[in-house]
């Protein structure tokens, strides 16, 4: 870690100006990822614009019936917020499936969107990694890549986005509000993260100096039919091998509206709108769910066999989608109760 200067901004526009006026500056939110990255010498900002004092930690109802999540509200405060629990239980459940209580208490919503991949090679300076150092190659293509992706990958990068929360935000069709040197704008969640292509160093579509100020949830929260199914190597503090966030609107046994996203398999939370369409207007059935799951992974590409490599995620992903859809329809499943241990509402 290198030496750096730090400014504590008190307003979003001030933070944007502060960052723009320093070379090599970075925004510091909860610090749960950035500080790690600095300790690993993956990033060496010479100036930090601290966001801790910005008035962006509130969660407020919107006139259109939606809910605004402040970028600086912590993951824990978001998950346990009464409006989130009541109207967007999918988001609450998903946040609580991630990390640990300690991390969720510190991590912010804005930071959750902007966390970097957990690909082994990205964190290990001794290894080639196109995302960390463009042009050096991808060690994951042939090496152990259990954490890596099978959808939307490229020959330059097969890293995944590690967030749980973002998988639910994708399914909920959230909108990201950002502020930058050129003013404010909104980004649809499906457009926020990007696929690696030949530019894996870019995780998202933020422009230089832009700051996430809020995440807006639309009115529909699928509070009656939802689930977040997370499959991982241990019951807590592990990133998803495969996860599925589902929100459904049901009319009897007919699915009126379906939104879902898959985590742990791609450079972004993976939504397949054609697959969602296959569900809508149909009667829920195992066959239908299998058809949908097959559609989602039709173009998947695995990178090697055996437990160190990730081809198994294609079959696991299909099974996870089938199970998650079933859970959301029936709403008779056990939430990973472990996620709630030691949590402080």
């Amino acid at each position: 870690m290198n030496s750096f200067t730090l400014t504590q901004a008190t307003a979003a526009d001030e933070a944007v100006r502060d960052l723009a006026s320093h070379d090599g500056a970075a925004y510091l939110g909860g610090g749960t990822n950035l500080v790690d990255l600095m300790k690993y010498n993956l990033t060496r900002p010479t100036h930090l614009t601290s966001l801790g004092l910005l008035p962006l930690a509130d969660i407020t109802s919107l006139p259109d019936g939606g809910l605004r999540l402040g970028a600086l509200a912590t993951n824990a405060d978001t998950a346990w917020h009464p409006e989130v629990e009541k109207r967007y239980p999918l988001l609450s459940q998903t946040i609580l499936a991630g990390a640990t209580p300690q991390l969720r208490n510190a991590a912010t919503n804005g930071g959750n969107l902007n966390q970097r991949t957990r690909c082994y090679y990205f964190y290990d300076l001794a290894t080639p990694c196109n995302k960390r150092e463009p042009g050096t190659g991808c060690s994951a293509l042939t090496g152990p890549n259990r954490v890596c992706g099978v959808l939307g990958t490229s020959e330059s990068c097969i890293a995944t986005h590690p967030s749980d929360m973002c998988v639910a935000l994708a399914a909920l069709e959230a909108v990201v509000r950002v502020q930058g040197p050129d003013g404010e704008r909104t980004i649809k969640f499906e457009d926020y993260h990007r696929l690696p292509g030949d530019k894996p160093e870019a995780d998202n579509t933020l422009k230089a100096g832009e700051l996430v100020t809020a995440i807006d949830l639309p009115e529909e929260g699928y509070a009656d039919h939802f689930t977040y199914l997370k499959l991982r190597d241990r019951s807590s503090y592990a990133f998803a091998l495969v996860s599925v966030a589902v929100g459904l609107k049901m009319n009897g046994s007919t699915i009126e509206k379906a939104r879902f996203a898959v985590g742990g398999v791609a450079h972004k939370p993976w939504r397949d709108q054609e697959a969602e369409q296959l569900l809508e207007g149909q009667t829920a059935s195992p066959d239908l769910f299998r058809k949908v799951a097959t559609k989602v992974f039709a173009e998947a590409k695995g990178y090697g066999e055996g437990s160190l490599h990730n081809s198994f995620k294609i079959e696991l992903g299909k099974r996870a989608i089938v199970r998650a859809l079933k859970q959301a329809v029936e709403m008779d499943y056990e939430v990973n109760s472990n996620a709630f241990l030691n949590s402080n509402p």
């Binding site: 957990r118 090679y121 241990r234 503090y237």
Partner: peptide, 16 residues
């Protein structure tokens, strides 16, 4: 080279 050389990726049981 070993590649999962940290507590996040070298898994041992949690209380859960």
């Amino acid at each position: 080279r070993y590649v999962n050389h940290n507590y996040a990726e070298y898994h041992i049981p949690t209380n859960a």
